[in-house]
Design a protein around this nucleic acid. Structure first.
Lengths: 208, 208
DNA sequence: TGTACATCAGTGAACGCGCGTTCACTGATGTAC
DNA sequence: TGTACATCAGTGAACGCGCGTTCACTGATGTAC
């Protein structure tokens, strides 16, 4: 009896208490992020509800705010997620028989302009999929977008062995993104293919 | 008395009746379209309500459905509106002192990569502003987007005097759109300028 | 001519739905004794 | 050891708001007589 009362009125402990395993929350957060990235890519910021994302991740919507401050914060994190994605999309994984012989930049370009990437609406590069949503997003979203863009620029810049490599690399990234944006937005499939192939050829020409 | 009764029960006339001047409805429709194009450009499809568009056009929202079947239909019309816009944005109107001497394609490119265009969020080219909204839009939206893209391609193709002019023109349009999309989306202003200038230089190099 | 009228552009209240967010609660789990 | 407990991830109902759309109505105007 006395013991019970003692327990009940004891001051809360200050020490760490870990009711779940340390990895548990991190894993859930990553599951949510992964679902968010896929769904935002496919349907855009306004086209996806938090309820959809959470249920795609196998959870209910109420728990969302244990992991993110709000939809905006999730969106910014989702753009960045593309970079550290542990399971890259099919178009990124494509392997030519002689893949090891081909420089990284050229493999990337071939994958970028591939039909797989064109048809992939979930795993699509966020520079393309989130092009105009980001324009209206906050600083965090733009910073995440920039990170992805800089990563691409770096790959090209390292490959180019010439003066003004950076300037050319910037233009090549623009060509990649622009070519795929136009291909994806144009109604006519033939014109889409034309955009894709023309930009692809132009980039390859510059890299060789 | 008899006359009144005769009037009251007369069958409705079949002939045209024009309660408002023939131009009146067309003018209102154009005012709505113009407001829609500006607001959609700035804030995207989901970021603008019909109420805002109508009130921007000096009307109340209820009358909207006398002019358009719904928001989607308005959006498609707004993308196309860019082409037949009677009052082009400032960045399009910019005149160099020796404008008459410079070919149309070069003037267009200079304007496209101008700081004015970069900072113009309302009059901005819809190929840039509506880049990812269109990806998720219906056939009508994509057809309108394609019309604008084809128009740009044509300008470049006519200017280029070489074999494979069309393929190069397609790549140049991709470079224009991609360069500006990246510039507008990247958080850092300096990097944005780098993208803009690099793509601009690349396009000018190809056109001369 | 003037006038009754049909038409339809435009008004503004109302409806219904979906979404972001909040909140009281549940239950799984590591810790302290 | 077993057990009471604090924590907090996760649940699901609820709230409030905004938006697309509808609808009964108003009023401006050209037409027919």
């Amino acid at each position: 009896m006395f013991k019970i009362i003692f327990w009940r009125y004891r001051r809360p402990r200050k020490g760490r208490i870990m009711p779940y395993s340390p990895e548990h929350k991190r894993d859930t957060r990553e599951k949510i992020l992964e679902s968010a990235r896929r769904l935002f890519n496919r349907r855009g910021y306004a086209g996806v509800s938090i309820e959809e994302i959470m249920s795609d991740a196998g959870l209910t919507h109420g728990g969302f705010y244990r992991h993110f401050g709000g939809k905006d914060e999730l969106y910014a994190a989702a753009v960045r997620q593309f970079l550290c994605n542990k399971t890259p999309a099919a178009w990124q994984r494509r392997r030519e028989p002689d893949a090891a012989m081909i420089p990284r930049a050229l493999r990337l370009v071939d994958a970028y302009f591939s039909l797989e990437h064109f048809d992939d609406h979930e795993g699509c590069c966020p520079l393309i999929a989130m092009a105009s949503d980001v324009q209206r997003g906050g600083a965090a979203v733009k910073a995440a977008y920039q990170e992805v863009a800089e990563h691409l620029v770096e790959v090209f810049e390292n490959h180019l062995n010439e003066p003004r490599a950076r300037e050319r690399a910037l233009a090549l990234v623009a060509l990649c993104v622009g070519g795929m944006v136009l291909a994806k937005n144009v109604g006519d499939r033939d014109l889409a293919d034309d955009f894709r192939r023309a930009a692809h050829a132009e980039v390859l020409g510059a890299l060789r």
